[in-house]
Design a protein around this nucleic acid. Sequence first.
DNA 1: ACTCACTTGCTTGTCGACAGCAAGTATCTT
DNA 2: AAGATACTTGCTGTCGACAAGCAAGTGAGT
Lengths: 215, 215
Amino acid sequence: MSSTPESIAGAPLTQAERTALSDRSMIDAAIELILEHGTEKTTLKAIGEKAGYSRGLATYRFGSKAGLYDAVCKSISRRWLDYLKAGVGDKTGIEAMGAALDAFYKFVTESPREARVLQILYCGAASPKSEYRETSANIHQKQQDDVADWVRAGQAERRIRGDVDPQSVAAQYIAYISGITYLWLINPDAVDFRKANDDMKLHLELSLSPEAKGD
Amino acid sequence: MSSTPESIAGAPLTQAERTALSDRSMIDAAIELILEHGTEKTTLKAIGEKAGYSRGLATYRFGSKAGLYDAVCKSISRRWLDYLKAGVGDKTGIEAMGAALDAFYKFVTESPREARVLQILYCGAASPKSEYRETSANIHQKQQDDVADWVRAGQAERRIRGDVDPQSVAAQYIAYISGITYLWLINPDAVDFRKANDDMKLHLELSLSPEAKGD
DNA sequence: ACTCACTTGCTTGTCGACAGCAAGTATCTT
DNA sequence: AAGATACTTGCTGTCGACAAGCAAGTGAGT
């Protein structure tokens, strides 16, 4: 009976390859199932079996349901950061903020499933005793700090008015993205991402550019 | 043996009064427990017993855990709408949007527990099969429509530039409130609500008022 | 105003499903 | 071959849900 799952295709896998494969499979299965049933109604048994393993592997590997969701969260976040990096490059100021909105739109349209699941997980992190709350808080904090840096750089180049507080602008910007994604999640038809982002870009221009009244 | 829970205080209660009392008690208990443990780790047994009843009453009365959370969501929403009405009155345009931000700040500072729980419940509504998703979607949609009306009224009075789309501005505005509340929830120290709202008001002024360049 | 049939509020017994754990088996590694 | 590591299976306590039962409230007929 040499037809173990791995050896069917030929060469046997190393231990490292086996764990990498089962990790990937279970994270993918989790994404699929969260999309369909949400985080609460998705069971570890369903995840393990959909990935082609036993009901117990997910717990064994990730320690707990929250541990698995934390891994999924980090996995999708990495993908999103790739989009972000590719879109923004080393732009700064209003330009960077506009490019990030475009990157986000691209992420949502090209990988809507990942985007949805990421937002669902972020929402789960809002619960008082969520075990991956730190993960969400750190990601949001880092993104907010990056935006604040863009604003500061823009101010240094005199392309953003000097009397705005970078941290506050960044908070507002991140809040918009988080909020619009939530609205899209609970009522996809009610949100026109393209239009909302274009309007946001216009408003950023109007409220941040130094040419306007004041400053 | 006339010392039933109700008759201790004197007059016996009517059926309607009894349900009103137990409903209220259970909703209050749920708010308390959600604050402490989140929605998932709060049990119906704990809610019923904290309210002074049996483990089974919550299920019996609200049908399911989701049914109870739906009731809590609606209960807190009503309170928030009171704040909103009192703060905005019949203002319109940018003024109304500023007043709503002030009302929201007041709600968050005066009833932080309710505000937190409401946001936690909204987050729970993001899950694909959440049974109170409709409730959240409706509330957000209605608020967005109200804001759009303020914008239209402001445009009619020539106090808001005519070339912005009311629906889009409203979406952006609601997204900001939703997003900043989420950020506050997962990391309360990182959000200065007062400052963020003041900045938001300034940016609304800059991007919506017709005196600026263009239009 | 008393009572008896009926309704409604609430509790308790029970069940299937779940997350998590520990002990066991199969597969790699040296 | 023998140890290490990937994975499975047996088990337990707890959960939400349901249904049957109990107790308190209600109202029509006398």
